[in-house]
Design a protein around this nucleic acid. Structure first.
Length: 197
DNA sequence: AAGATAGTCAACCGCACACGC
DNA sequence: TGCGTGTGCGGTTGACTATCT
């Protein structure tokens, strides 16, 4: 399936260009997430499904906080890492807007180093809040009908209402896991179109 | 000013698991 | 029930930037 598809065309690697970001975002806004492996082509991207998913989940998804971790977030990471170990996705699920990749990076870059020198007294650091522009990205979200000749996203058929974050960060095959993700309220238009068709 | 080093973060890789057939 | 496929996850790498010498 996707593997064979991906084998047959040269896939781009490396950093994503703004154009690629725009294409992926526009495609997902319009059609939703139905199959990462098959989405790339109609979206006009020469990327693997994995690459698209990673880019979306870790960077493009609305609600992602970019910027420094607050003291509270750092403490949460420390506490959860003590309980859960290197289960970054589980830790990320407790920190809305933070991705497992970001937490993992932060841990390796900051916290492990801190633990090395001083386990108990974290140095003071100014919390850095994400800009309004970033948080304001969580606004309305419209999903139209899928393009011709592609399967419908089963996730949208199964749920009458859905949080955008759930839609964005999960596969259509694992609806149970979706509910564990932090809820970010958004409005999604045109869901009825799926049912009506 | 230029090279070396350290820090940061996006992205890739490979494995494991869930699911559908 | 086994196999193929898609997705999620954790570890790692590499590019880029900042700072130091």
């Amino acid at each position: 399936m996707a593997k064979s598809v991906e084998k047959t065309r040269a896939l781009r690697k490396g950093a994503w260009s703004p154009e690629e970001d725009q294409k992926l975002t526009a495609y997902i806004k319009r059609y939703g997430i139905w199959n990462w492996a098959e989405m790339a082509k109609p979206a006009g991207l020469q990327r693997s499904g994995k690459s698209c998913r990673l880019r979306w989940v870790n960077y493009l998804r609305p609600g992602i906080k970019h910027g420094n971790f607050t003291k509270e977030e750092e403490q949460t990471i420390i506490d959860l890492h003590e309980k859960l170990g290197n289960r970054w996705s589980a830790i990320a699920s407790k920190l809305p807007g933070r991705t497992d990749n970001e937490i993992k990076n932060h841990w390796h870059a900051h916290l492990r180093k801190r633990f090395k020198y001083d386990l108990n007294s974290l140095p003071e650091s100014e919390p850095c809040q994400p800009s309004n522009a970033e948080t304001d990205q969580i606004s309305s979200f419209r999903i139209d009908l899928p393009p011709p000749n592609v399967p419908r996203p089963s996730i949208l058929e199964s749920y009458g209402s859905i949080s955008f974050n759930s839609l964005a960060s999960s596969s259509s095959n694992h609806p149970v896991k979706i509910e564990e993700k932090p809820n970010i309220k958004v409005s999604i238009g045109s869901l009825d179109n799926f049912k009506a068709e």
